[in-house]
């Protein structure tokens, strides 16, 4: 196997892994967006809550599974708390209301986390069994933990697909995303539905956060930047479309990783000096937002809008 192929495969896996984490964030966001028509900036806080709870419970108890369940349960509960106390009151407001209220929620969450865990970063450990590498092909051993992220993410994506497309709850979600008023008129209990959708989104965000914890540092405000990337994913994928979020998340994951990996050699061949070294990583980030602007301009409904519409 040539070194070039190995590199390509490894970077693809990296892109896939990053994309999967983004998908878990974006899936909840796009559901909330699609069903309730709410812009939720506080979604990043749920990601943070999941990461903090899992990292600290794992560190204290030594059980990764306990950490994971606490993280998901905690994020879900906080999400439901948000829904019941704040979101119910602003569903009827305009998008500006949503932006402001959830911006406020984000500020509060970041500070509450800072009060409990302090301002310094936590550095979460990888569970013992996943600390090594897995030999995938000759010359390529990939970190087991990152592989686990990919596997878990794909499984969750599959479950979500079944849930949305093959169950009664999914049907109701799709109906509400398609036409809220009509669904309500036909007897869909939107109060319960909204809470369920919100809780589901929160659980996914918590899962994403706790899986990301060992890859990034666990800090107050850690969700904010992931949040903005998730919005990019949601918008590119088409608001309300879980399938779109999945494809767009992978797209963003690949653009980011390949941009970081291959933009530099590309720029280096075009420009003299160390322009490439310095500019490439930031250019990769820039590329993502440029992509979003282009998509919004030509296809405001997103690349893969919900089929039901």
């Amino acid at each position: 196997m040539s070194a070039g192929t190995v590199l390509l495969v490894e970077q693809s896996l990296n892109g896939l892994q990053f994309g999967i984490m983004l998908f878990l964030m974006a899936a909840g966001l796009t559901l909330v967006f699609g069903v309730m028509n709410v812009v939720n900036l506080a979604h990043g806080s749920l990601y943070m809550v999941g990461a903090y709870l899992c990292a600290s419970v794992f560190a204290a108890s030594g059980s990764f599974l306990l950490g994971v369940s606490t993280g998901i349960a905690g994020a879900t509960l906080v999400g439901i708390l948000f829904e019941v106390t704040v979101f119910r009151r602003i569903y009827d407001g305009d998008h500006l209301d949503h932006v402001l209220a959830t911006f406020g929620l984000t500020l509060i969450c970041n500070e509450v986390v800072r009060m409990i865990w302090g301002p310094t970063a936590l550095f979460a450990a990888v569970p013992q069994g996943l600390a090594g590498q897995v030999q995938l092909m000759p010359g390529l051993s990939y970190p087991a933990y990152r592989l686990a992220i990919i596997v878990v993410g794909l499984m969750v994506a599959g479950l979500l697909y079944v849930l949305v497309n093959r169950t009664r709850l999914g049907m109701v979600i799709r109906a509400s995303a398609s036409n809220r008023t009509m669904a309500a008129a036909l007897g869909v209990n939107d109060v319960v539905l909204y809470t369920i959708v919100f809780g589901l989104g929160a659980a996914l965000a918590g899962l994403s956060g706790l899986m990301a914890a060992p890859v990034f540092a666990v800090t107050p405000g850690m969700g904010d930047n992931v949040l903005i990337l998730s919005f990019v994913v949601v918008v590119i994928g088409g608001i309300g479309s879980v399938r779109g979020a999945f494809l767009a998340a992978l797209l963003i994951g690949f653009v980011d990783t390949f941009g970081r990996a291959f933009l530099r050699p590309l720029l280096a061949s075009l420009f003299a000096g160390n322009v490439a070294d310095n500019a490439a990583p930031a250019m990769a980030s820039l590329l993502i937002y440029a992509l979003m602007a282009v998509v919004l301009f030509f296809r405001p409904q997103g690349l893969f809008p919900p089929r039901t519409r």
Binding site: V86, R89, I90, L100, G104, L105, I108, N110, E111, M115
Partner: peptide, 16 residues
């Protein structure tokens, strides 16, 4: 040091 939380609460109140 936790002033952003107060700010966030005020923001919520303004919207609500």
């Amino acid at each position: 040091v936790h002033w952003p939380a107060v700010l966030g609460a005020i923001l919520l109140l303004i919207v609500l």
